[in-house]
Design a binder for these strands. Structure first.
Lengths: 230, 230
DNA sequence: CGTGAAGTTTGATATTCCGCAATGAACCCG
DNA sequence: CGGGTTCATTGCGGAATATCAAACTTCACG
């Protein structure tokens, strides 16, 4: 809960990019900064939405649970984005669970500041609604993929989404910059970790990917696109 | 494009329920009213969002198309709700296609009035964001169902969603009040019309449903809930 | 009416993918 | 450095569901 946050941390991020130095300072003074170790649950589905968050570093998994205990990963939040913004969609409770995919640092503010931010900070409201729209687009894409594509294509799509949000380029290859298990990928695509494992093995044989435990590199992104059946 | 619209048409609908008579009148004077015959495409995915809509009567299917020409029904819009509200999610183009599931009547306004509505009409912005939130919730549910449930359960869920939005009660039974084909249901659930047909036949044998061409009645809603694996 | 189009049913066959089971490799921590 | 835990691999059999094919109903419309 440091109150020595550097304005440069957030000055360039879209929701705040139009603000002047003073506004940024005000904003930071009211913020709480916290480290969430990997696999921490930041908030749960249905829980009262008491704060909203800005992810500074790391990646968040947005997860929904079934009554039967299975889990589905609906989205990933990349650094620099707001999350836990139930207020933006007229809710008083969080619509899903947020889990730190790796060690994460996030700022957060109490909900009662939400309206203030929207009113006082030009571009804040607009940008958050754009974010909501983008996430809705991603959900749409997921549904489309689940409804029309075969497992192999869906898994390829999932990998592509992952590298789009957390891809470290390395020559021709791309590595997913945060830890991902086979189980995680199966939770994104509605399959089993077995099937994912088999697919990755096959792709590794063909030189499309390479994978260590919890880490995946795509050696031939182009071939992956083909496999995704775009 | 009548300008003799009765204020009572919309005065009670959530987005406008807090407005006084004069405001409603102003609002209606600026609106265009139009009939969209069944199966009409009201707007297409990617198209410039020039107007936003309020559905007065009928049901809308929100559809996405794959490059391969398959279609997926992501949502249904019931009467009384806004749709085509790309502005609310920071977009300049419609994110999906809207098709009239039956004869529909809708009001629409040019986008340049959107900001005015948000500023001038108390509750309008809030209500639209609530709507966006609800639709996001539905997309989440779809994803959860597609990822974790078997076809039979998914189809049962789809029927339940349909009766929730367009269900005419009739004693113990419920009838879906607008036309639905096997193909439509398969487009909602990511199956084939063949499988849906088989399931409905089986359920009809068990007395759970009854169906004519393009119309489905649920005779035993409780059994359907069980089949949905809630 | 009669004809065609759209929607539905059903069977037979094909295939994908899951579930189960067991082994093996990588990592953490004391 | 050893022991346990988490994560990954692989084979096999079987169930769920798609695909193919054909006949049948219902309806709209001339």
């Amino acid at each position: 809960m440091s109150n020595r946050l550097d304005p440069s941390l957030i000055a360039r991020l879209p929701p705040f990019s139009k603000l002047d130095r003073d506004q940024i300072t005000t904003l930071l003074e009211q913020a709480t900064s916290q480290l969430y170790p990997a696999e921490t649950t930041i908030f749960s589905e249905g829980q009262e939405a008491e704060r909203f968050f800005l992810l500074l570093d790391g990646h968040i998994r947005v997860v929904r649970l079934t009554p039967g205990g299975e889990q589905v990963i609906a989205l990933h939040i990349p650094p620099g984005q707001l999350f836990g913004i139930a207020q933006a969609i007229g809710r008083k409770t969080y619509p899903a669970m947020a889990v730190a995919a790796e060690d994460c640092i996030a700022l957060s503010w109490p909900v009662n500041l939400w309206q203030r931010f929207c009113d006082d900070f030009p571009g804040f409201a607009t940008e958050t609604y754009r974010t909501v729209g983008e996430r809705m687009g991603e959900l749409h894409e997921s549904i489309l993929a689940m409804a029309t594509k075969h497992v192999e294509e869906r898994v390829a799509c999932a990998l592509m989404r992952l590298i789009q949000q957390g891809g470290r380029k390395d020559g021709n290859a791309v590595e997913i910059s945060f830890p991902v298990t086979r189980q995680n990928i199966s939770d994104m695509t509605g399959t089993t970790l077995h099937t994912v494992s088999r697919l990755l093995s096959a792709w590794a044989r063909d030189g499309v990917v390479e994978s260590r435990r919890r880490h995946i590199r795509i050696l031939d992104p182009h071939r992956l696109v083909l496999l995704s059946g775009a």
